[in-house]
Design a protein around this nucleic acid. Structure first.
Lengths: 214, 214
DNA sequence: GTCTATACATGGATAGAC
DNA sequence: GTCTATCCATGTATAGAC
């Protein structure tokens, strides 16, 4: 069941930390529960990581790099907003299943009051943000929005919202699904603006220029 | 410092729970820490609420009703998307200051693995969702989007994203501000579509109808 | 590197005095 | 309704044997 039964203790603990966070939440994640999940002795947490916080911080990096790496190539191939939306939805299902986004949610909650964790969580999120940002720059360029939207900010909004919706799904599955559907629909609307005829395009761009300080 | 020093013990505990959640997070919220924040004896948590979970559940309802009530009238007066955006931003500042959204974030994290808390948190969020939904129905009706967007789903997306961004702000303040700016800008763009001339309006609507199953 | 044992702190929960 | 005292489980962290 554990990824590698013969893996090094460090890896077992990192993996145990991730699993404990998803299954029991930050509130019940401790050296003991993590060690139990990892199948190793509790004292090894302190031998290898010095403290529980440090273990969680490294687990955050470990888990996020693993995940982002898994999607990097596919993200690089996305060239339209609707593709991005479809991908986001699919990734949501996969990661939800495995509880990987939930980990970020738990760490984010814990990080609010623990500087060490905060730094690690910010770093973990920034891995996602960097990828999303690259895609957004590419995808929005061909859209009337390219001129007015800020991909840097939007990437952060997307990542944070993704985590928020993930947490929301934990308490209201139907609501979360409906939320995702609504966003998908909204995205399709924006994507459609891309395909307006030249006259309408010009009218839209003109109106947007007036409305924003772009 | 405490809201009412002479308040009943129940209220002191509810208030102490909220303050403890914001200041120490769900991971360090216990009968003892809450009682200390409330300035009452630890045993009273169990006398009045039976368990810590139950206290937190009631605190969630208590805090959320208080907050939503405070904004209900103003929300009812909002009649355009840009007004809604401005209001959201202002509310964000105020609630951030007091840490009230953070409470929902902490509870949401804790709720992932505690059914009792999950129900309470879902109920709390639904108070916000209901208000946002009413505004969205009203505001989107006059927009090309009214025909294609789902206010029920969007309200949930907005509420969940708000919490997500709030948590994100705890680990990356600059990033969160930029995210909010980007969303505000995006909202302004959508709002601008509202003011297109009749010809462009028709072109947009036509294109959107083709693009969605609306 | 890993385990046992152990210290000491914190947390959940109850009994009983006031 | 509130407080003191207490029990027992859990959690952090270290020392020392293997």
């Amino acid at each position: 069941m554990s990824p590698q039964a013969g893996a090094g203790t460090r890896e077992k603990l990192l993996d145990g930390a991730v699993r404990t966070l998803t299954e029991h939440g930050i509130a019940k994640t401790s050296a003991r529960t993590v060690a139990a999940a990892a199948g190793v002795n509790q004292a090894l947490v302190f031998y290898h990581f010095g403290s529980v916080d440090e273990l969680l911080s490294e687990a955050c990096r470990y888990a996020t790099e693993q995940r982002v790496g898994r999607y990097r190539e596919r993200l690089a191939a996305i060239s339209s907003l609707s593709e991005l939306l479809a991908f986001g939805r699919e990734m949501h299902e996969v990661e939800r299943e495995a509880g990987h986004v939930a980990v970020l949610g738990q760490l984010l909650a814990g990080a609010q009051t623990q500087p060490r964790l905060a730094a690690a969580t910010a770093a973990g999120l920034s891995l996602w943000v960097a990828e999303v940002e690259k895609v957004l720059v590419r995808v929005l360029a061909s859209t009337p929005l390219g001129e007015f939207a800020d991909p840097v900010g939007l990437a952060r909004a997307v990542a944070a919202s993704f985590v928020g919706i993930e947490l929301y799904e934990g308490v209201d599955q139907d609501g979360a699904l409906r939320a995702l559907d609504a966003l998908e629909q909204l995205g399709a609307v924006v994507a459609a603006l891309d395909d307006l005829g030249p006259v309408a395009q010009r009218a839209v761009r003109h109106r947007l220029r007036r409305a924003t300080r772009g």
